[in-house]
Design a protein around this nucleic acid. Structure first.
Lengths: 334, 334
DNA sequence: CTGAAAGCGCTTACAG
DNA sequence: CTGAAAGCGCTTACAG
């Protein structure tokens, strides 16, 4: 059995109240001598206050629940990492769950997190598999932030997807492309929808029509990108450029084009999204849109932790992107 | 305030003991009528037992602590996912921390996890930045498993690295290679060391000498693989084949070779390690060694959860690998 | 500045 | 089968 506060009190010859006060390290006035005795006892017994007991009395678990679709996409761990970084700096810890985009799994995760009385909840991903039990959230006083998903009920942190899509569109138009294929994420992904919307806006502004045969669904995986690209290239008027809603899909696209004996960027230009570490190491190096997933996480935690205690209205943050021009779009000849 | 067990007891007109027994769902004998009343009250009040209070009384937080170097390498989230899958199935949840291979961060994480009284601890990664306070672990009764790191004190789950390395070596030898470069992980990575040892054993068995100039350190990243490969190719007798200790480094190697105008596999054969999803979508498709990171996680949890309660001696599991032959090694012509 | 005591929300012998 | 009560390990008014 680990040492408890009573053990420390006995060892130091003081009351548990006193131990509690010095162990918590607040600014409660304590006699210097008393404090030294307690600190010594803590040290000797290797006392570490029980987090569950603390949580129970303080009505704050100091746990942040994170629910994400699936940690196999590097984007989610990176956002989570951002959350973790600010959480630990403030004495919180991260409890994370995967949903696999399965509503039942999502529901079970939320339930478990609520049972643990997480102080706050961060929901990552634009899917709609996660439905939050508003009543319970309110009863528990659980703060919520959604990362990458639109809603008015809760605070949100989102990427400037439409603007990014528009920027990619303009870039490709400037390079002379008129038929631009879009490899979308899975159905219902708002991030993907917004990127497409941005692309279309750019095309429209340039007076170029965008055909529906130039959109194909991937599912954010390499395999999805591969298949979608093949479908795109079999359109009646195949695109001369492809914009994939994720780098992983762009890698699939690269393979598909290669397998069809098409050169990138000479025959088909390619642009991805995310700027994952290996984008730079693909050949041709991938032109893509850089978004700091880590930053999404830290911003979200800022919203969450600053708001704790004093109830406020939902805040909505947008994180800007940055287009990274490398070789695959053809703007830079190798 | 959420409903407590007392609220439910009052609502159902029974004692809190009774509510506790039906809410916990054990096989404690309860009158059918009483049970129905309680269940109805639970439903009406939307009662969810407070996990902290449960943990405190049962002396079991039902939390599994996971500490990994860094979730940006897809391997770690995948192992963590394996842990999560069996954890949630058994009513546990995962508390995860990143160390960035920094001993100070690692120490702080372990401390925080211990304070939360995690039921068990899974340490992922072969680095040695994590040092466990044995005394405390014993006092807390915290079960430990190390994933990918050798030790006798705790249970371990490890990949058959040496065997895999040997298999890669034999394969490359059979293809006629005699100078095989090795792109290692960061210094002190036991996984990387073991893979190299396996490679050397294969070479030795074939009577081929392996020069130290044919080993270069990457750090498991694309950039590290890129630089290491360039160094390798500047050896007095450049290798005709390269074995990278991770797929991410292999991707860096691919770029480096490409940039040096060397064709893969015609000029230089290449083999990676991990079989990440995109390995199949690289061109040439990457020959690599498949290891189920997910499986490492599930096996580790099996060791952990089965052992809880009855103290046993450390168990040591090995997970086999499978070599996946694609194009980059040159065995299959495209 | 210090301590006795109530209380956080549960579980679990113990008694009936 | 059901309940009263002690206890898990803390914190925090309250009193001095």
């Amino acid at each position: 059995m680990p040492a408890t506060i009573r053990d420390v009190a006995a060892e130091a010859g003081v009351s548990v109240a006193t131990v509690s006060r010095v162990a918590s390290g607040g600014d409660y006035p304590i006699g210097a001598e008393t404090k030294a005795k307690v600190l010594a006892a803590i040290e000797r017994l290797n006392y570490r206050p029980n987090g569950m007991a603390k949580g129970l009395t303080q009505r704050n678990s100091r746990l942040i629940g994170v629910v994400a679709p699936d940690m196999s996409n590097p984007y989610y761990p990176e956002v989570t990492r951002g959350i973790e970084d600010v959480a630990t700096a403030r004495g919180y810890q991260v409890l994370s769950c995967s949903t696999d985009r399965d509503p039942a799994r999502a529901r079970a995760s939320i339930d478990a997190l609520l049972a643990k009385r997480v102080t706050a909840l961060a929901v990552i991903g634009g899917g709609d598999e996660v439905v939050l039990p508003d009543g319970d959230l309110e009863a528990y006083g659980t703060e919520v932030v959604m990362i990458g998903r639109a809603t008015r009920r809760f605070s949100t942190v989102r990427v400037e997807n439409a603007e990014a899509g528009q920027e990619v569109g303009r870039h490709l138009l400037a390079l002379g492309h008129r038929r631009i294929g879009f490899v979308a994420g899975h159905r219902g992904s708002s991030a993907s929808d917004e990127r497409l919307r941005g692309l279309r806006r750019a095309l429209k502004d340039a007076g170029v029509e965008h055909r529906s045969e130039h959109v194909a669904n991937g599912d954010y995986t390499e395999a999805g990108g591969y298949d979608a690209t093949r479908r795109l290239m079999h359109a009646s008027a195949p695109p001369s450029a492809i914009f994939a809603a994720s780098d992983r899909m762009a890698i699939g696209a690269l393979a598909a084009l290669r397998d069809m004996q098409l050169r990138v960027p000479d025959d088909v230009a390619l642009v991805g999204f995310d700027d994952i570490p290996m984008a730079e190491y693909l050949r041709p190096a991938l032109t893509t849109v850089s978004v700091s997933a880590h930053r999404l996480g830290t911003e979200a935690m800022g919203l969450l932790l600053d708001g704790t205690g004093r109830p406020r209205r939902p805040q909505h943050l947008r994180v800007r992107t940055r287009m990274v021009i490398r070789e695959s779009c053809g703007a830079r000849r190798t």
